[in-house]
């Protein structure tokens, strides 16, 4: 066991799998010499060489398209998109190609690419270094979407993603990169894709979240406990395929649900979770399902603090739910 930050866990997962499997390669902008703008790939170039750690031209569509071709050949590419805000030039390659290759070829071709990308705000990144656009990808058949919130889960889920036979969009909560640390096993282990985690048990309200918002939710749950409200915090860890059982059994127990994420509220992934709860557990509900989300605006530089739900805002939604 070694104490690692979430960022170090991501690096360690790639290093571990690259040592285990020569088919694993890393490609992206600045991933080699620079070790990535967040240093997620630091040390990999020296350890594995230029053929397995490829500094690419500045072209996201090319990165994903080339990674797809490498995967078609049988490699296990990990493509880094520097910020999720810059993933859109590759949207066609992800949505029209990567996600559909298995289906359209009747399973004769597959492209198991992992697309790693930092997402979310909290670093004063303004409109173009803060986005949470997971809903587009969770909406796309053929993609798995993973979003860890702890160093342990980040390493275990990234190893699972690299070994997965389907393409995975791996979302890294950038504001947690260096702010959380915990003991993480050395060597390979996996955390299963598609399994949520009860991050804190409670009985009055289910607070469902993923990525960096899980930390905010845990703090809000702690604060609520002081007021006598027992909050169950669910860390989804995977958005697609979603662990519906954990969500429903929690809501059946608590009778209330608040979904917390930082993407814009309208048409968001939180809306999908809310709809599923309404479809499958309406009889258990004692209050409307609430969403505490980012604003229906682009992310703003100066007022980021008003954009991303903070402990106080999450608390106010918890209170609305339990006092309904």
């Amino acid at each position: 066991m070694t104490v690692r930050t979430l960022l170090q866990s991501v690096t360690d997962a790639m290093k571990t799998e690259m040592e285990n499997d020569e088919r694993v390669v890393v490609l992206g902008e600045d991933v080699g010499r620079d070790g990535g703008v967040f240093r997620a790939t630091e040390g990999l170039l020296d350890r594995f060489g230029v053929e397995r750690v490829m500094d690419t031209p500045l072209n996201e569509s090319g990165i994903i398209g080339v990674a797809t071709g490498m995967a078609l050949y049988g490699l296990r590419p990990i493509a880094e998109i520097q910020f999720m805000d810059f993933i859109y030039p590759a949207f066609d390659q992800i949505v029209s190609e990567l996600s559909k290759i298995r289906y359209r070829s009747g399973g004769t071709y597959t492209a198991p690419v992992v697309v790693r990308t930092p997402f979310g705000g909290g670093i004063k990144g303004g409109l173009y270094h803060s986005q949470s656009s997971e809903a587009y990808f969770a909406h796309t058949a053929g993609l798995k979407v993973v979003a860890p919130s702890t160093p342990y889960d980040a390493k275990g889920l990234l190893i699972s993603s690299i070994r997965d036979e389907d393409p995975v969009i791996f979302l890294e909560p950038k504001r947690l990169y260096r702010t959380v640390r915990e003991e993480v096993p050395d060597g390979a282990y996996t955390v299963p894709i598609g399994k949520a985690k009860i991050a804190r048990e409670g009985k009055d309200v289910s607070l469902i979240s993923y990525g960096a918002m899980v930390r905010t939710c845990l703090e809000a749950a702690e604060a609520a406990a002081k007021n006598g409200i027992s909050v169950e915090v669910i860390d989804l860890r995977t958005l697609s395929p979603l662990d519906i059982e954990t969500i429903i059994s929690s809501v059946q127990k608590t009778g209330r649900a608040v979904i917390a994420n930082e993407a814009p509220k309208f048409g968001s992934f939180a809306a999908e979770v809310a709809a599923l709860i309404a479809e499958k557990a309406i009889d258990s509900l004692g209050a409307p399902v609430l969403r505490v989300s980012g604003l229906d605006t682009p992310v703003t530089y100066i007022w980021e603090s008003a954009y991303i739900p903070d402990v106080q805002r999450v608390l106010s939604y918890i209170n609305r739910s339990v006092s309904y």
């Binding site: 390669v25 053929e51 397995r52 490829m54 569509s61 090319g62 994903i64 398209g65 080339v66 990674a67 797809t68 071709g69 490498m70 995967a71 078609l72 050949y73 049988g74 490699l75 590419p77 066609d92 390659q93 029209s96 190609e97 559909k100 290759i101 359209r104 070829s105 004769t108 071709y109």
Partner: peptide, 25 residues
Amino acid sequence: VVTPSSPIATQIPHAVGMAIAAKHM
């Protein structure tokens, strides 16, 4: 012969990726 799609030109980077992979192997 690899699976084609209807969007135009999307297969071009795939061919390049495949060629790089073959070289790599």
